[in-house]
């Protein structure tokens, strides 16, 4: 009599644990199956997104190579290097702004760091104001200019700020200015090796 009650108590204690364990096991199995199916597809979709992004700056691109150390894409067309691209992050008004910066293939020394252009990958700036950093009229200003000209007009540079969105504009400009020089040095060192 007492032994059956003990058994019942034990059952009461153990069953929830066993049940939850089974549920978790089923969940793990289901997820690993789904992961197996989608893993390659997700990787493919990511690569496609990167290619599309790079292709906007380098329409002639037929191959790209990513360097993990310095986090720079080297862009090839017809077997020769046509430029470099890398992602940078600026701190905008509404949060981080992700920018892709493309450089021409030059000596990358001193004044010879020339921008091919920039694209905004993601941002959370105010719609109608800071959001205008994605518009061509703002981005076109970066095309083909030397990195030392990447300053706002009020600081004797070549970029007009968007009216009503000075913080967003200068965030982009400053991030490009700072990071482009740094990355150019990294690329130069890498090339020297």
């Amino acid at each position: 009599m007492s032994s059956t009650r003990l058994d019942d108590d034990l059952k009461q204690e153990i069953f929830p644990v066993v049940f939850l364990t089974i549920v978790v096991c089923v969940s793990v199995i289901a997820l690993s199956i789904i992961n197996g199916i989608t893993e390659d597809k997700i990787e493919e979709a990511k690569q496609e997104a990167i290619d599309k992004m790079l292709g906007e700056q380098f329409p002639e691109m037929d191959d790209s190579e990513y360097d993990d150390d310095i986090e720079v894409y080297t862009i090839f067309a017809n077997g020769s290097v046509v430029g470099y691209a890398f992602m940078i992050e600026a701190t905008g008004y509404g949060g981080p702004i992700e920018i892709l910066v493309a450089l021409k293939n030059t000596t990358l020394e001193g004044d010879d760091i020339i921008l091919r252009g920039i694209s905004i990958i993601s941002h959370s700036e105010t719609p109608g104001l800071g959001e205008k950093i994605v518009e061509a009229s703002f981005l076109e200003q970066f095309e083909g200019i030397g990195v030392n000209d990447v300053r706002l007009t009020k600081d004797d540079g070549g970029i007009d700020a968007i009216s009503g969105a000075t913080i967003s504009s200068s965030a982009v400009v400053e991030a490009v200015y700072d990071h482009a020089k740094e990355k150019a040095r990294d690329i130069r060192e890498k090339r020297g090796v």
């Binding site: 969940s27 289901a30 989608t38 979709a45």
Partner: peptide, 24 residues
């Protein structure tokens, strides 16, 4: 509640992975 959450989390992860793969 723990069981429900495990079930829901599993289903949401399935949706998340499927969307990333097919509707990036």
């Amino acid at each position: 509640i723990a069981v429900f959450i495990v079930i829901i989390a599993t289903l949401v992860t399935i949706v998340d992975l499927t969307m990333q793969a097919f509707l990036p």
